[in-house]
């Protein structure tokens, strides 16, 4: 039947359009191609203060995303924050004396971990710990310091 064929055709068009839309959402919007869902090697870094860093925050190097924050913990003995970074496995030549800092994207943006490469010949592997870290800048502390120094200037 002719009518049957056009029904099947339109159903095919509908299903294809729906699947293309899903694919579009997954690839273009959700960025499936670049997502690192736990597939990467883990390194830890200890910070005195991580500010408002969240899990899944980006880890960047020279501004390029190389991984995500996969877990955040607290060491009860040293009172430090233990941040586990999941680094994309294609970046295998990160020196083991790399410096990890917590930055804020813009004034109101979220926080992320930035890595500054060191000069070591040894590269990071799974389970390593980054020794050199710099804590998040907490806005209130900066303002506090600023006021404090202003006040000292005033005294002089």
């Amino acid at each position: 039947m002719v009518q049957n064929r056009s029904v099947e055709l339109l159903v095919g068009v509908f299903m294809a359009a729906g699947l293309v839309a899903l694919f579009f959402l997954a690839m273009q919007v959700g960025n499936l191609s670049a997502s690192t869902n736990g597939e990467g090697y883990l390194v830890t870094a200890r910070f005195d203060n991580i500010g408002s860093l969240k899990e899944k925050a980006p880890v960047t190097m020279a501004g390029v995303r190389v991984g995500r924050v996969s877990a955040i913990g607290f060491d009860q003995a040293t009172y430090e924050a233990v941040v586990t970074l999941s680094i994309d496995p294609k970046y295998v030549t990160i020196p083991d004396d790399t410096f990890a800092k917590i930055f804020t994207a813009g004034l109101l943006g979220e926080q992320y971990v930035g890595l500054d490469p060191g000069g070591s010949e040894e590269y990071l592997k799974h389970g390593d710990q980054l020794a050199l870290t710099q804590s998040a800048l907490v806005l209130e502390e900066i303002i506090g310091q600023f006021l404090f120094s202003k006040a000292e200037e005033g005294v002089e």
Binding site: F14, M15, G18, L19, A21, L22, F24, L25, Q28, V29
Partner: peptide, 16 residues
């Protein structure tokens, strides 16, 4: 059951 997620995806994709 089959159509609903496809329609929702269509909605979101065209919305974006």
């Amino acid at each position: 059951f089959i159509s609903m997620p496809l329609l929702a995806a269509l909605f979101s994709a065209l919305g974006v």
